[in-house]
Amino acid sequence: MATTLYLLRRLLQAVVVIFIVTVVVFCLLHSLPGGPARGILGAQATPQQLAQFNREQGLDKPLVVQYVIYLGQLLRGDLGVSYTYNQSVAQLIVQRLPKTLVLTILQAVVALVIAIPLGMWQAARRNRPIDYVITTVSFVAYSAPAFFLGLILIIVFSQTIRLFPSTAPGGDTLASVFAQPQALVLPVVTGAAAMVAVFSRYMRSSTLENLGEDYVRTARAGGASGTGILVRHVFRNSLTSVVAMLGYYVPVLFGGSLVVEQLFNYPGMGLLFWNAAQSSDYPVLLGCVLIISVATVVGTLLADVLQTIIDPRVKAGRA
């Protein structure tokens, strides 16, 4: 019962947040040079065309009324028409979003599979040379701009030793992304590097904290081995906080997709957005901002739901 209430409250929060996001995007739409009419009709439109468009679209009405109209369009799935692709923005996003989701999920899975054992291992070897070495590498991975890291990876692995291609798989369908799995290696590594750094650091300190708890001493007194305690007790206890952290990390992953997709020419939302910025395709830009933000809110919400499933303390409302 408490769980249902908590989830309902969390869902309501997410709806409120999405509502605020639509207000922000609406404000951006109205801060475009020449207003939304100029943004939608393009730079070549004449003043007469602009005035006619404003009348037809209700853009001469008060802002609040316009916002209600805008919300209505959103609810019908109408995000406008791209003037470089001559396609509806919704259609473009439906094609591209799954590819970005595949890439970010791959990055997250690879990062966690590396970071969780790495952090625990560091905690077990704390303050020894190897711990310092990994900590230093983590700092560097976190501090390197993704485009610089990706560039170095391309020069080393694609140009010098020709192991992986520097361009991600193209094609319109989702299946084409997997047609050439080796082409996914560099984009996934570039996007995952900083995340490995963040989560291994987090896992290291979380493990250290848990190792000081009473239950570890009890288990040790009961004769459990060091590795057994790490895997059976500490891992399970740290996992909940890692999942919570994952919720905070979703925006970073989506933000990073912009740079990774542009660098490797991966045909997802990030590349769509990048190209739209180069051609000032405002309907696409604002549609992408809106959808990527909604995706972020949903991703964060899913992480929270997952946390309530695996952590009984959250269910009881004590954490």
């Binding site: 929060q13 409120v16 947040v17 999405i18 605020i20 996001v21 922000v24 951006l28 801060s31 475009l32 040079p33 925006p251 970073v252 989506f254 933000g255 990073g256 912009l258 740079v259 957005f273 990048w274 739209a276 910025a277 000032s280 405002y282 830009l285 604002l286 992408c288 901002v289 990527i292 933000s293 909604v294 972020t296 809110v297 964060t300």
Partner: peptide, 22 residues
């Protein structure tokens, strides 16, 4: 909730929109 909404909009996306405007 305003902070949540701000965090939900990836900063790089907003920055690129601004660069397209001015």
């Amino acid at each position: 909730r305003v902070v949540d909404a701000g965090i939900a909009i990836p900063a790089l996306f907003i920055l690129l929109v601004i660069s397209a405007i001015s």
